[in-house]
Simulated assay, not measured.
Amino acid sequence: MKVFVYGLQVKDEEEYSYAKVLIEALIQEGIGILLYYQFANELRKYSDEFVDIATVARYEEIKKALPEATITLGGDGTILKVVTLIRDLPIPILGINLGRLGFLASVEKKIIKKAVRQFSAKEFTILERSMLELSSNKTLFTSFPYALNDFTLNRRDTSSMITIHTFVDDVLLNSYWADGIIISTPTGSTGYSLSCGGPILFPDSHNFVITPVAPHNLNVRPIVLPDNKRISIKVEGRTNSFMCTLDSRYETITSEYQIDIRKAPFNMKFVQLKGRHFMKTMNEKLLWGFDKRN
């Protein structure tokens, strides 16, 4: 068995200690390791004890090695970054949370050794999470036009609202007067969309959520629709510059852009360790079921 260990930075000695615990636990279980080259360089700032571990940097190298899983050290943002690297490869992700909330990186750093033992003993299931795909009449996100969490379109360089004409299968749904709009997958429903009043969807739901950002009309609310629909967007405003994002990546567009959002032709796979499930994550991260008054 071989795994790809991915991280972006090692901020301090404490984070290095968690990386060391992970690597040593993998070695103890007889699991082969591939390190992301940038993460390997970060580790070398603190010690040379892992310099002999092989490194990879590009999609093609990962495809050739084809590890059984990817283990990330960081937060949900780290997982969104590694998705752009492993792309459509059938490599499930196990996220270890060194950040704050961590809906995707659900393994807490204090149980790294236990998580590795469970993984080695194959005490897990594989969950598939849908992705969204972006296409446009102009060049946009050409290197990887897919997102695990969401697509967003927001105003830029102005305090005025923008108008976002939104169509579903070429039929007008609404013209939103708002600061922006979010189109999220079930995975992304616990992110930016949630903070703007959107609903939480179970990860295996086959839906999109359209959530307006600060809409002017009070009767405009988030809407859930099947993910077999195609969502088309045209935007206009007092300026001709708008901010468009796919997960953590962003580009600037104008009103000349016609954008289509649809379900991607592939899913992203995740490792769910035995004893973990979505409702438990909700309880822990959102403190559901925990009332300090009791």
Results as ranks from 00 to 15, higher is better:
Q38L: 12
F208E: 00
N174H: 15
I183Q: 10
L286Q: 07
T139G: 09
D227G: 08
V56G: 06
R156C: 11
I164E: 07
I200D: 12
T84M: 03
L246R: 03
Y146V: 04
A25I: 00
I91V: 13
G77E: 09
L34Y: 13
G30P: 04
L132G: 11
Q28V: 06
I79F: 05
F167A: 10
Y59K: 05
D12G: 08
M161T: 13
T239I: 15
V213E: 08
N240D: 15
I33F: 01
A214H: 07
Y18C: 10
F119H: 02
V224Y: 02
N219F: 15
P186K: 06
I181H: 01
L85V: 12
T187R: 06
Y250G: 15
I200M: 11
A214T: 09
V56K: 01
D88F: 10
S159F: 06
S17E: 13
G237W: 09
S248N: 13
T125S: 12
Y146F: 14
P265F: 12
V82D: 05
M279K: 12
P186M: 09
E108W: 06
A115K: 03
F4Y: 09
V107S: 03
R293T: 12
S136L: 05
K292V: 15
E15S: 12
M161W: 04
G75V: 08
V224W: 04
I112H: 00
L26N: 00
K285Q: 10
G74V: 05
V168W: 07
K45G: 15
G99W: 07
G74L: 04
T70L: 12
L104N: 07
F270L: 04
G191M: 00
P265K: 09
F144N: 09
G95W: 00
N149V: 11
I259R: 07
K285L: 10
R129I: 09
I231R: 05
K274V: 06
I162S: 07
T187S: 13
E13K: 15
V3R: 00
I93Y: 06
T78K: 03
F103D: 04
G237P: 01
Y59M: 08
G30K: 03
T163L: 14
V21Q: 14
Q272H: 05
F39Q: 02
D48I: 10
P67Y: 04
K11D: 14
L286S: 08
S184M: 07
S130K: 10
M243H: 14
V171C: 07
A147Y: 01
Q272M: 14
R117H: 10
D179N: 12
G237V: 08
E133L: 13
G99P: 08
P90D: 13
I62P: 06
L127I: 12
I261V: 15
V82S: 02
C244E: 03
D88Y: 11
K11T: 13
R221V: 07
P199S: 13
A54W: 08
L8W: 02
N97Q: 04
H216Y: 12
E24L: 04
S130L: 03
L98G: 00
L73V: 04
A54T: 15
F119Y: 14
E128Q: 15
R129E: 12
L94A: 02
E108C: 02
I96E: 00
K234C: 09
M243F: 14
A214Y: 06
F208L: 03
D169R: 05
F278D: 05
S189E: 06
